[in-house]
Design a protein around this nucleic acid. Structure first.
Lengths: 226, 226, 226, 226
DNA sequence: CATGAATGAGACTTCATTCAT
DNA sequence: TATGAATGAAGTCTCATTCAT
């Protein structure tokens, strides 16, 4: 994964990978049917880690003392934002994972066979979306959001977040596209569009960010930041 | 472009391209320095066509009779939505163009050298964004939107639209992600987040869609739909 | 010829040549059967110019006043040295010619078909050698040189000169091989080996060099040196 | 090496080489970075073998009984001639090596990058020249040769030999240039020019040739001559 | 269980030559 | 007489995959 993230897919050859792992070329073929299978396994690992990240977010939110006084609906909304935040912050927490995920989502049919994508990656992602949807639904049920299709809304926040990530990548090439506030502003805009006040939106978001900021990092990242 | 769009980059080899064009391999090198140059030229063509689409949208809006009674601010907002609609509808109007654009935006550093991207594609795209920003600014100045950073808002609508397009592609693989209403709902949510009423948002959007629906199509598409 | 000399055989392509000449590619094929024929024509031009150089050297020697008091044998020997000097100085007087000649002699069977070499280049070169041989013969007949096979001697001075030129080229890469005196010392050694005194050898050589120094130059060279 | 020598550089393609070796094309790239590296390795092999030839010549000279009565200066001179003889006889002893060496010396800047030439081939060649120079110096110190610049003289014999080899190649195309005595006569002429008598020169040369005649041959050549 | 040499199809690119205009 | 677009064989190099050891 490091190889892909640091030097691009072009550098991801079997020979290079084997040498980087300290194995012989042939050895890889004992464990994987071919290059595609390796890539697919990598993707799976990313998605599984993302699932654990979500669980961790939920766990932290549940055990966090600061939100004791929040009503159930608000808590649900913050929970949705934590999940979204876990997704959005992937690029900071696990850059290699983020790169891999972005590529396979942004460029389906090129990198991975559709079947692999459909079988391995999309279902978990859908699970995550379902999680967000249920939270948004609860928030709406408790009047924190205006009534609306929660499934659709979960798709919207995900799409909006994905779009922000895409543009963020362009920001590295042309700085006109670099705007670190893009994601919070995007989320705030959507929340307000769905009926919260500006103050609420900002409050929910800052609470969620407080949780997300403590999500576990890739070990290398943790060390680097220390 | 058809080759890339229909069979993917993996099928886009010089030999294949030449045979598809009815030329010999060497002939391509009279006109292009290499494969990269061909790809870059393709990208340029896409962006340039997109610029013409924008101009056409603005033209149609200006000459359209139905909006006579709209105040200046609303007209500006509809103008912004027309531009966004031109971008969003690219996949329907020119599928090959859309595929190419999506790939080069979604996967920078892989397909095209950064310089090509930075020099040829991003500047026009930025121009389009500037156009949207000025419209949004006018809308805010006339009280149609709450005051806010117009440049940031233009980035937001673009990002949100881009995210919708990404998810739409996944919808072809797993139908759970397929939701034809995603884009209008996204735009409506953002507009309401920025201060319009639900009725206004829907009204503006339907007016914009009326214009976008008449934007010129790829000839092949026009024929197919006829 | 300039193209070959300045940028090497690798740059000598039909397309490049045509563009340099201001002609179209096809035009060259009206005048030459193919690339080989062009190269052969170039070689011919070199050899013919060398023949004119020889004639000019002989002419200058004949009309030169300073050698009035020289006996016939010495004059013949100086004549031979003038011819050799014309050959040796080709690299200074006509660098492009020298490069071409050196390659076709140093690397037969690669650049030109044997037949071309045998038919076009070697005969004139042999004529030049015969000229040198007759001079050396006269010198020996008049006692300036010890008796000996003049044909063989002409081959020796030519070979020795050719070797000096080869090493001179290496001198451009590694300066240990660069020694500007190599040729005069070589000739002096041979002359002394054939029976002249050191003083005679030096005298003959300086007389010959006086003549060679006025041999005509490539126009470009003449301008540059002026 | 056989391929180059027998069919020329034009036939030396990767595909041809691989098929000749009984390997697949790709296999060559496990051992060499590219075609240039293969050529460079070939050159190195030639030069290294030449170094061994020189050492062998010196060894044979030292252990040879027949020269017991030679004075030190004469022995040194014979040593120089043995070295030169090793170089001159390369074409007979190892035709393929000779062809390769001749081309890379005769046509620098075309075949091999200058750096390769400068780094790999010229230094050993220079070492050989230094060897000859020291012998010639000793000879002059002991009065066998007239005093003179030994380094220059070593360059001269090398250049003269190189020139003879060049002309010898032409002799295969036009027999007028074929003269098997050219090298001994060249060496004799130079030695006499540097102060030996004709008898001495011939004696030294025949002693050297006696040694050179036993220098090791390419196995294939040995078999053929047997 | 691991090795790594070998495979060979296929990628991009070059360039001498042709030929309709 | 000249043009120059087009040809297509041939060149170098890459890399996923195999298989005897």
């Amino acid at each position: 994964m490091r190889l892909v993230a640091e030097e691009g897919y072009q550098a991801f050859t079997i020979a290079r990978l084997a040498s980087e792992l300290g194995y012989a070329v042939g050895a890889l073929y004992r464990y994987f049917k071919g290059k595609d299978a390796i890539l697919a396994a990598l993707e799976m690992r990313v998605v599984e880690q993302l699932q654990r990240d979500f669980a961790e977010g939920e766990q932290r939110l549940a055990t966090h003392q600061g939100h004791a006084k929040l009503d159930e609906g608000s808590l649900a909304l913050v929970g949705a934002l934590v999940a979204i935040g876990a997704y959005e912050s992937l690029g900071r927490r696990r850059p290699t994972h983020a790169k891999l995920l972005a590529t396979s989502l942004g460029d389906p049919r090129e990198l991975l066979a559709d079947e692999v994508l459909a079988a391995g990656i999309l279902p978990p992602l859908q699970g995550l979306l379902g999680h967000v949807a249920s939270k948004l639904d609860a928030a709406a049920k408790h009047g924190v959001l205006r009534p609306g299709d929660a499934g659709e809304r979960s798709l919207l926040v995900w799409a909006a977040t994905q779009g922000v990530l895409t543009i963020r990548k362009l920001g590295r090439i042309r700085e006109d596209f670099a705007n670190p506030n893009l994601h919070p502003v995007m989320i705030t805009s959507l929340l307000m569009g769905w009926g919260t006040s500006a103050e609420q939106a900002v409050d929910f978001l800052s609470r969620a960010n407080g949780i997300v900021g403590f999500l576990s990092l890739e070990s290398g990242v943790a060390i680097a930041e220390a």
